[in-house]
């Protein structure tokens, strides 16, 4: 999609880095153009009009001008800076993880407005500082869906038979569930409990408010986490560095227990 010389867009700032003395390269995710890199001139100078409006984890309305290489952010007005996340280590870490996933799984200039909505909703849900594990898992499942990797959860991906309420198997390679019989031919797949399959099916087809009503115990939550992590690693062919940080926070139990169980 070709942009006019000067254009306005909503944007979620995904990351930024300094270049030169006072400028920043900002990676933003937009509804109309997908991921973009743009320059914020003078953003590091004290008193810059851009400054805090181009910090990662802000949702802004921006004016951009076409540049020779990268576009230039000429104005930015924060719509939501998600202040609740900035005072809570665990939820901030979850939010940074979602930004990292979007950044590393998308290409520049490929429009995906459902993905933008998903990201924005996820950040807003995280701001409520509850149900964070479900928020993150729901995000992962739908992120993959918007990228074209909707797992087949209703029928066996191999023989197309109906799945029975027994332990079935998740084939990352084939992008769906294998019945126990088909799994014998490909025994590397991950076993999936009946409850986990139920939750994934429900999440696949509903909005987040509905999804969040399911109560998920610690064991099921950790199963879902492992399944989604495995599936993403297989599809996107990489480890996510921010996952390590989440794991470490959990391990150190720096996180209030109530955050993780309910």
């Amino acid at each position: 999609m070709a942009a006019p010389h000067v254009y306005q867009t909503q944007a979620i700032v995904v990351k930024q880095s300094k270049i030169g003395e006072a400028d920043r390269i900002v990676t933003i995710y937009t509804p109309g153009f997908g991921k973009l890199q743009a320059i914020a001139k003078g953003a590091c100078r004290p008193g810059s009009k851009l400054g805090g409006n181009v910090e990662p984890l802000t949702y802004s309305s921006m004016m951009l001008a076409k540049g020779r290489n990268l576009d230039i952010i000429t104005q930015s007005q924060t719509i939501d800076a998600f202040p609740a996340l900035r005072n809570d280590l665990w939820h901030m870490a979850c939010a940074l993880y979602t930004l990292d996933l979007v950044d590393s799984s998308t290409l520049e200039n490929s429009e995906n407005s459902p993905l933008f909505d998903l990201l924005l909703n996820t950040l807003r849900c995280l701001c409520q500082l509850q149900n964070d594990e479900s928020v993150v898992r729901y995000f992962e499942l739908h992120l993959l869906q918007h990228l074209g990797y909707r797992p087949q959860l209703r029928r066996c991906v191999n023989c197309d038979s109906r799945l029975n309420p027994v332990i079935n198997f998740f084939s990352y390679r084939q992008g769906g569930i294998l019945c126990p019989r088909c799994n014998q031919k490909e025994p590397t797949c991950r076993p999936l409990s009946v409850d986990a399959l139920k939750v994934l099916r429900l999440w696949q087809g509903c909005d987040y408010p509905t999804a969040s009503r399911v109560k998920i115990g610690r064991e099921l939550s950790s199963e879902l986490e492992q399944v989604m992590q495995g599936y993403m690693r297989c599809l996107l062919q990489r480890e996510f560095k921010s996952t390590a940080w989440l794991q470490e926070l959990k391990k150190k139990s720096l996180v209030d227990n109530c955050h993780r169980t309910n």
Partner: peptide, 16 residues
Amino acid sequence: LPFGSDLEYADDMTLG
């Protein structure tokens, strides 16, 4: 707010 800055141009986070 940084010294010498202008309220009008401060971002919401800083002003808050």
